[in-house]
């Protein structure tokens, strides 16, 4: 095993081009577990901690360019307004110690369906800034997850940042685990209301081979909200609408039975979370609208 310590982003890209099998390590919260337990012996380990721009973020007009290694703790503390869904998801990641090290780049690189950031990114809308010596490309988050622990990155690419759309409405995130802290998701759900476009987006974690959106549910809800004039009249969403939305979110799952939970439970729980997060976000929207703050 060789330990590569690029001192700059350019050096990192060059190293990755030269050694496409190099495993990038930032927070270490996935990679080191695999090394400690002898599950993985990469030929090259490439430390990204020495590259300061990876831990920076820039708040733009439309989106936040979030450096791949910005620790979850910083997201929780500093980006609650711009990225409320991701900030909530960040708060559910493992433990304070892990949140101090881990960042969204790691979640994306590992692309485990259980990664906590994914549902929030899917719901908010995001693009992954993938860079190699060949250049930069923006991968829409919807196209990023390609299989169980597989993503759309080319072997010579590194994740520089993720561009997450700034919230234009309330967002929520909830995850089910069998412990009240420090737990991997049995399943998770992210929901973002986008009043600007009068759409909603969702994200489902740990209930399919990859993180997925419940598109039919999104379309149904957007149509129901539009039809009922809810965006304007600020009424409570009818229970039957919430129920159908929950049902469609459940239907978007394609889960398995594993040691953490059954497929049936995951489907059921996603429905419950969908209904609850809809209630919470819609309540925030109505309240804000009532106070004249809605978009």
């Amino acid at each position: 095993m060789d330990f590569l310590r690029p001192a700059s982003w350019e050096e990192a890209l060059a190293a990755k081009a030269e050694h496409p099998s190099a495993v990038p390590i930032a927070g270490g919260t996935d990679v080191m577990v695999e090394i400690n337990f002898d599950h993985r012996r990469p030929e090259y380990l490439m430390d990204l901690n020495r590259i300061p721009e990876l831990t920076d973020w820039e708040v733009g007009e439309e989106s936040v360019r979030l450096g791949a290694s910005v620790p979850y703790t910083r997201i929780m503390e500093h980006l609650r307004t711009e990225l409320p869904g991701l900030a909530l998801a960040a708060h559910t990641v493992a433990s304070p110690q892990i949140r101090n090290r881990g960042g969204v780049g790691g979640n994306l690189g590992t692309a485990s369906p259980a990664g906590d950031a994914h549902p929030a990114l899917l719901a908010a809308g995001a693009e992954v800034e993938a860079v190699s010596v060949r250049g930069t490309r923006m991968i829409p988050i919807d196209d990023f997850y390609t299989g169980v622990k597989r993503n759309a990155l080319a072997p010579d690419e590194l994740i520089r940042a993720v561009h997450v759309s700034k919230a234009d409405g309330p967002q929520q995130f909830a995850k089910v685990g069998t412990r009240n802290a420090m737990v991997i998701a049995v399943c998770a759900f992210g929901l973002a209301l986008h009043p600007a476009t009068r759409t909603v987006r969702t994200g489902i974690g740990s209930a399919a081979p990859t993180p997925v959106r419940a598109r039919t549910a999104e379309e149904f809800l957007a149509a129901a909200l539009e039809e009922g004039g809810f965006w304007d009249n600020g009424k409570v969403v009818t229970p039957s609408v919430a129920q159908e939305f929950a049902r469609l979110c459940s239907a978007a799952c394609n889960p398995i039975d594993d040691v953490r939970g059954t497929a049936g439970y995951r489907r059921h729980a996603i429905g419950v979370l969908a209904r609850r997060t809809l209630t919470w976000t819609w309540e925030s929207y109505r309240t804000a609208a009532g106070e004249g703050k809605a978009a």
């Binding site: 909530l88 708060h91 929520q172 909830a174 995850k175 685990g177 009240n180 998701a185 979370l273």
Partner: peptide, 16 residues
């Protein structure tokens, strides 16, 4: 949420 079932995972605000 820290004092509710689900804890930090934000699964309920009292519902259920």
């Amino acid at each position: 949420v820290r004092q509710l079932p689900g804890g930090l995972s934000n699964t309920t605000h009292g519902e259920g």
